[in-house]
Each structure stands twice: as structure tokens, then as C-alpha cells.
Design a binder for these strands. Sequence first.
DNA 1: AGGGATTGAGAAAACGCTTTCTCACTATCG
DNA 2: CGATAGTGAGAAAGCGTTTTCTCAATCCCT
Lengths: 367, 367
Amino acid sequence: MGRRSATGRIGIADVAKLAGVSLATVSRVMNGNFTVDAEIAARVRAAATELRYQPNPVGRSLALGKTDTIGIVVPDLSNPTFQAILRGLSMAAAQDGYRVLIADSSEVSSEEAILAGEARRRCDGLVLCAPRMSDAELAELAPSLQPLVLINRSTENTASPSLMVDYAKGIQDLADHLVGLGHTRLAFLSGPPRSASNKLRLAGLERFREANPGIDVHMLPGGSSFEVGHQAVDAVLSSGATGVLTFNDLVAMGLLSGLHEHGVNVPGDISVTGFDDISFARYTTPTLTTMTVPITELGEQAWQRMIETIRSARLPAPTATTAAPLAASAAVEDADDGARAPLPTIFHPKLTVRGSTGPAAVHPGPQ
Amino acid sequence: MGRRSATGRIGIADVAKLAGVSLATVSRVMNGNFTVDAEIAARVRAAATELRYQPNPVGRSLALGKTDTIGIVVPDLSNPTFQAILRGLSMAAAQDGYRVLIADSSEVSSEEAILAGEARRRCDGLVLCAPRMSDAELAELAPSLQPLVLINRSTENTASPSLMVDYAKGIQDLADHLVGLGHTRLAFLSGPPRSASNKLRLAGLERFREANPGIDVHMLPGGSSFEVGHQAVDAVLSSGATGVLTFNDLVAMGLLSGLHEHGVNVPGDISVTGFDDISFARYTTPTLTTMTVPITELGEQAWQRMIETIRSARLPAPTATTAAPLAASAAVEDADDGARAPLPTIFHPKLTVRGSTGPAAVHPGPQ
DNA sequence: AGGGATTGAGAAAACGCTTTCTCACTATCG
DNA sequence: CGATAGTGAGAAAGCGTTTTCTCAATCCCT
């Protein structure tokens, strides 16, 4: 009496009929429940293979209350950093039999909440990667996204595992590296306005300034793409800086390319540094001095935290009364289920010196 | 009597109770069915927002027989080409309210069939991107994957839309370009053994050889990564070639970097070409001459074909008798449902000349 | 004012699977 | 040899929706 007379697909019922057993028995056999007589089990398996039966995951998910899928929300899938995180996550999850659903918010912070919610409902957990939303929004949203792992953000109230990279220290290391090479006039090509990791870099540079009063650090507006770096050549040159820090490797590569076109020698006239150490960084000309962030490992670690959270969320028997869904606060209930210490895991990037940095020129480069 | 006394989550039943209506009515309201009295509808909506009710997608999927999700299987998520396809697909699908599930086969062709099957069952359709499996396997698998879109492969029997890039012509264009610059000794750094697109390139070069008997084309084993290009420097130099074709931009970049380290001037001593025109290609030093493939558009087009296929598969009433699931051939049934012309859509890459190619040196580069 | 057409909402079946509950049957022990 | 524990498999409930079916109430027209 259904809309379509059967989906056309082979179901557990077909197998049961062919094997002459009940649905329950087929299910038992398919799930390795050994309370089934060997002879019958064999008959069921034979029927299953003959019909090429494959259990319907949606039915399974509904009955089991899990989808074996996790979601990830990224601000921009064209960014190699997020691609690497996605890859690390996906490979690690696959090892444990989970799949990954992706959602790209296109850097639109208002989309994030909706995307995250939708993705979460389809999955057993969610990874929020460098969300652009405000702290307040994030804090409000986090409880309802529960098995949640954050990358490059953290929340106070909710006990969601969080993976952070110490960008502040990283950018300081780079600045120190340049100072060590004799540079006294630096410039920083900053990142996207809503990026939390950019704020960390700015904070790091602030500390650097305090520690190095003699060094001039020129701030330049920026972004996260090649184009930003490529178009910043003039601004960089007129700043008079001999050492340039950039938001990430992409920007650095754009800048490198632009400087080359202008006939500026790197590192002879100007030193350039990136951030992240994407795979391309070792193949630029000159090769790029940058901070190495174990990006793929970040994705893998995100998965580890995720699977831990999912597993610990399954065990504890729900003591909460189920009978009173009156309060509108239902979403908060399991907020401190996996009440593990919510201390963020901090990744410390490490300085990788390559060919794009060198001793400061005696006089600044060509204006 | 369920395992856990309710999932804890708010369900349609809670809303119904609060609004004092039946489950059916809530469903009607949520789905914009206007046969509901305005006053009641308002009450339902109020209850829904008060409880922060969000329909469970799994339940919905089961009832509706669709998941609003498609899957994509790629050989290697770290390859920028596949990343770009994924991005194009994902963005286009998102426009139509679909999500993307990813599966990375890690270049293991035996994994592909399983991954594809699993992914397909969870989704409404599948994109198979440059599958490494054999033609026979692909042909056998295709019917069971039905709403299926192929990228860089095609099948004879099944009417699955297929998107192909004319790599054969592309590589010829590049070779012609080098010949036009006076090069007479060429080399080709080939791609992964199981790659169909590599076979097309080889076929193209074969035709090129026939048309240009005077030109020497040296074949070198390769792969698809930086490292391959980087490590091929010696082989390239000892081949005596002055013009080098590579499998893709990654290989070309590795080679560029390696040549630079060896003090070989590009394009002065040797000209190098890539393939694909990934975004990095315009920021190498020298900038890379390559064949531009509209990669992201490939992903978008894949989505267009997919949504067409899905939609056309919904309309035709299933005339087939549902009562006899005896034959094991059930998977083949809707093989020619969307019996549109299965002509592959061919993308023609276009030559983009940049700085890595130039006139042939009078005498071959340093040995 | 009475009868057929129309509207609106509830009851229940269906989607495909898992699992508890239950019971028939066999093996074991006193 | 009869009572009891144990084993294996079927019936049915349940997961959270949607949708058909059904029926009561309202409406309009003659």
C-alpha cells in the first residue's frame, strides 16, 4: 500500500522468504549473531548472496540510531589547509568505518549555523573547522551540535574537544627568525577579517612588538589567497620592509610571484615567510621559509577526539527523565555528558627555514 | 519498548502533543501542505519553534526513499584536480539542497567497488571520479550504482552520463607548441599506471609521433606527485630532451624545482609544460605553460548531469512487476531508465602559454 | 431543507531494519 | 521418566517520518 509498490530493491524480507526463515533470523545472521543454527545461517547467507542482498543503511540507521557518518563544516574548500584537514579526517574516519559529509560555508558566517545544524542531524557528530561565527553564536550553538570537535576555536561552557594551533607563537618565531637575520623593518600581510587564527597572529605580533621595541612592524590588510599576495607587491615595497610575514603560504606564494615580476630578488632584497607549510611550499622558487603545521595530523586528531566523544556518549545510561519535554532547554541536556577536561589540544608549529629568507640587505630594496 | 526510552531528541510526536493535534497534521504543516486550517497551522508552528523541533532526516529519508545526499569516490583526495572537482560538485549540489559524501579509495582499485557500493546505498546517486578499476569491472558495477555520473571514464552498455577531458588532443597541443618553438627532442613524464587519463595522453602522443616522424619523444615512467617530477631531473637531463611534457602540473612543479636546484635554466635550457592548470600554476617561477582544464566546472557539470538523472529516474512509473523478486538480476532493472543518449560530454582543454616554455636552445642543456 | 460535493484532520500503514519478548522444542539432571 | 534449564527462531514493537485511507463536519445548490 506504499507510494511505490516496493522500492524495487531487494530487502531483508526477500531474503527471509527465499531462505524460508523469519526476518529476525536474517537480521541475526547478517549481524553475526551466533545464536543461529549453522545450517540455517548457511541457508540465509546463500539466499543473501543469490539475491545480492545489501542491507539498506537508512533503515539500519533509523533502527540503530546512528549513521556511521560525521560531518565537517569548513569556511572554504578551496583553501589547501582545509583540504588537508578534510583529508586527514576522512582517512582516519574511514579506518574506523565512518564516512564524511562535507559542508562549505563559503566564508559566510551566517550560513554556518544552519549548515552545521543540518549536517549534524544527518550525522553522528560534527567537526567545525575554523568557524567564522562569533564566540557568542558558537557558544549558543555548541550544545545542540553535541558530539562536536572544534578546530582553531574553543568554547568556555561546553566540553567540546578543541584542537588549536599556536599561531601567536608561530608568527613570533617567524618574526624572531627575520630579526635574527638582521631585519629591522617588517611587514605583515594579514588574513581574512573574521578569521580567529588571524586574530591570534595579530596578538602574537603585538607581543613581539612589546618584546622588540626597536623593530618596526608594518600592518597591511590582506586575505587568504594568492591574489592578495600578488596584489600586495606595491604596498609591501612602499612600506620599506625588508622582511615580510604573510598570513599563509598561499599569500606568500602570490607575493613571491609578484616580487619576481617586479624584478625584486628574494631573499636578496626582501625576505618572505609563509605559514602552514602546505605541500607546495617546498617547490616554490625560492623554496618557502614557513611555519610547519601538521595539518593532516590535525584532521586525524580531530577524528580521534570525535570517536572518543561518540563512544563515551553511548555508554552512560540516560538518567534524565524522558517524560517531560516541556522545557525549551532540551538541547542542553547532554552538554556535559563526556565531561572530560575541555582543555584544547595545542599544536605547536615549527619553523622551517628554506630559501625565501636571508640576511637583511644593507640598504632597503628598490622603491 | 525500544532499547533506549526515546532518543532524547524532540520528535514529531512531542510537537503534536503540545499543539494538541495528530502526527499527520504536524507533518503536513512542516511540509507546507496547505490543506491545514490556518489557525491550527499557526498553533503547530508555535509548538515547533517552542520545542525547537527539527525533523529527523533519517526518518524522513526512510519514508521518502531519498537522502538528499550524493556520494563521490575519488582515487586520491590530496590531488588538487580531484579537490577542485569535489569543490565544484559540492558547491553546485549545495545550491540544490544536496550534500556530498566523500570516499577516498587511496588509488587502490580493489577498494573502489566496495566504497562505491557503500556510498551509493547511503545516497541518491554517485559520482565516480577517474576510477582506477578495469573497464570490465566498471561495466559490471555501473548498473547497480545507477544514478551514476562518470568523470574521465565511460561505459558502453549503461547509459550513465560521462564527463571526459580530451587529454589526447591536449597533450598533442602541448607537443605542437614545443615543436613550434623549435624543439625536436621531447620527453614525457607519464602518470599513474592505472590512470585512464594517462592512457589517453599516451594515445595522443602516439598520434603526435605519427604526424611528426622527425621528432623524438622519449617516454619516462612517472606518477602524479611533486616528488615524481622532482626525482625525475636526472632522467630528464640524460634523455637529452629540450622540451618536457609532464602528466600534470604537480609533476611539472616538482620538475621545475628540481631543475632550478641543478642550475638548469627554464625555459632557457629546457622548456617544461604541465597539465590541468591548477591555481598554483600561475604562481610558479617561471609561471607554468599548461593545458587549462575547467576543473571546477567539471564538478559543476557532474552535478547537473546528476540532478537530471535523479529527476528523470523519479518520474517514470515503475511498470515492472514487483511480485517476482526471484531472479538475481534485480540490479539491472532500471539500467535504461533515463535512456538519454549516453554520449560523453567532452571538455577540450586549451593551451595556456606562460613562462616555462621558450625557444629551443641551439645546443641541448648541460648534461 | 435535504443531499451531494468539499474540506480538514485523525488513524494507521508503510519505509527497512534491529531487538526484545515469547514460546516451542530439545537436552540435561535428579 | 518427569521436571527444568537451555537453545533457537518467530512475532511484533519500535526507530521518526510521510502519506494514504477514512470519516466527520461544513458548505452550496436546488
